[in-house]
Computed example of a mutant assay.
Amino acid sequence: MSDGTGHIMIVTDGDGRVLWRDGNHSTMRRADTVGLADGHQWAEHSVGTNGIGTALATGRPVHVYSEEHLMRVLHVWSCSAAPVTDPDSGLVVGCVDVSGTARSLHPATVALVAATAKLAETQLALRMHERDERLRRRYESLRGRPGILLSATGRVISGDPAGDLGERVHLGARAAHFTGRRMILRDGTVALLEPFSDGFLLRPSPSTAPPVLTLSFLGEGAPSATYGDHDRPLSLRHAEILTLLALHPHGLTAEQLSFHLYGDVGNPVTIRAEIHRLRTQLGQAIAAKPYRLTCPVEADFLALHRLLAAHDAASLARAYPGPLLPRSESPEIRRERDELEAQVRACLLRQGSPEDLWAYAQTCNGRDDYEVLERLAALPPTDPRSAVARSRLLS
């Protein structure tokens, strides 16, 4: 088809690198002059707006006509392209493109490449189901060995009838290199990840539950942590790192941690040194690449989020001794601290009882909060809290 119409068809990988092309010989010679040839890369970050790169970037079929190309040398070309998504991994693995001169390529060509990409995805899905079936038969032969069967990409194939794990388990880039790796699942249970044939098995951990990391970082006292049955002394910097890791359960790179802690002046080398010192105290509770907490975490500031979502003013007042790490200058922690303070105050003013407002008035920010003190000052004159509130308003 492409040879007779003066067009060329191109297939690329997920990075936009041309793997194959065919079509009109004259058009292919012209394509050679602009790099529409085997081995050349057409990702948007390399050549700007173009059919291949834009389809890969947006994840949907596109038609890029003539002057819509970023590079002037491509203004005589038009392209229709559609990405190919691997149903196994969920990643875009390639692109189908039809290119030709601006006068000869009709915009409706985008429907053709979209259908072609769907056919490719159908073939990939068929092969995926065949692999799943072979893996499932091997799994079913393991009588008496409970476990959850995963594909090589972490898709749940068998062993989770209730769907508690969802469609996929995040394994990480180096899962194949770990035998007996412990994982904490979405429901909080611990399982061992074991290679099995062309996939993995998640099996119940024979060991006891991992130690819980308990963080107490609210209020004006020194931040404290308990790991298992042992209290751990913490510097402010280590408390900041643990706060950020607790707020980002999927993990952070050294560069991301550095930016959250220091802003643009941060140095990832400093972060790596601090993480090394912190791991001497907490051991395997902190994993690397990316840095993340691998144990169950109970943090007072995370509990606040749950109470705020439940609009439980009474419990909120009891659970809030003051701001999150008040001495921290980390940009990310300052933002979290300010947001928590604002949400707690708003909830207590909207729904709190006098007892709740009085509890908030004992915190460092609540002592001089004019609106809170006005509410307390309106209590009956015989209530001692009213006298204290009036005294603070006059001071």
Rank of each mutant, 00 (worst) to 15 (best):
Tyr262Pro: 01
Gly228Pro: 13
Pro211Leu: 05
Ala225Cys: 09
Leu244Lys: 01
Ala246Tyr: 06
Gln256Pro: 01
His230Gln: 15
Ala222Pro: 14
Asp231Met: 08
Pro206Leu: 01
Val212His: 12
His250Asn: 15
Pro204Gln: 13
Gly221Asn: 12
Leu252Val: 02
Ser216Phe: 00
Pro223Ile: 03
Thr214Met: 08
Ala246Met: 07
Ser207Asp: 12
Pro223Thr: 08
Pro223Lys: 10
Pro210Trp: 14
Tyr262Lys: 06
His260Gln: 09
Leu236Trp: 01
Ala254Met: 03
Tyr227Ile: 11
Val265Ser: 15
Arg237Ala: 13
Asp231Val: 06
Ala222Leu: 01
Pro211Ile: 08
Gln256Ser: 07
Ser224Asp: 10
His230Val: 12
Gly228Arg: 15
Ala239Cys: 11
Asp264Leu: 10
Ala246Ser: 14
Ser224Pro: 07
Ala246Asn: 05
Pro210Phe: 10
Leu252Asn: 02
Glu220Gly: 11
Ser205Asn: 15
Asp229Ser: 11
Arg232Gln: 15
Ala209Cys: 09
Leu252Tyr: 03
Leu261Asp: 00
Gly228Tyr: 15
His230Glu: 15
Gln256Arg: 14
Ser205Leu: 00
Leu261Asn: 00
Phe217Gly: 03
Leu242Asp: 02
Leu257Phe: 10
Arg237Met: 12
Leu257Met: 04
Ser207Trp: 01
Leu244Met: 07
Asp264Tyr: 07
Leu242Glu: 03
Asp264Lys: 12
Ala239Glu: 00
Pro204Met: 08
Phe217Leu: 14
Gly263Pro: 03
Arg232Phe: 00
Leu257Cys: 05
Pro210Met: 12
Glu220Arg: 13
Glu220Ile: 13
Arg237Gly: 04
Ala222His: 11
Ser207Gly: 14
Glu240Leu: 03
Pro210Glu: 05
Asp229Ile: 02
Leu252Phe: 04
Pro233Met: 07
Ala222Ile: 06
Ser216Lys: 11
Thr208Glu: 10
His238Trp: 11
Leu218Phe: 06
Gly219Trp: 03
Leu244Asn: 06
Gly263Tyr: 00
His250Thr: 15
Arg237Glu: 10
Gly219Lys: 08
Pro249Lys: 08
Leu215Met: 08
Gly263Asp: 03
Phe259Trp: 13
His260Pro: 02
His260Met: 08
Arg232Ala: 14
Gly219Asn: 07
Ser224Glu: 14
Tyr227Cys: 12
Leu215Val: 07
Arg232His: 15
Phe259Lys: 11
Ser207Leu: 07
Gly263Arg: 01
Leu218Lys: 02
Asp264Pro: 01
Pro204Gly: 00
Pro210Ala: 05
Phe217Thr: 07
Ser216Asp: 12
Leu213Tyr: 11
Leu242Phe: 09
Leu257Thr: 09
Leu247Val: 08
Thr214Cys: 03
Gly219Thr: 02
His238Ala: 02
Ala239Tyr: 04
Gly221Lys: 12
Pro206Gln: 05
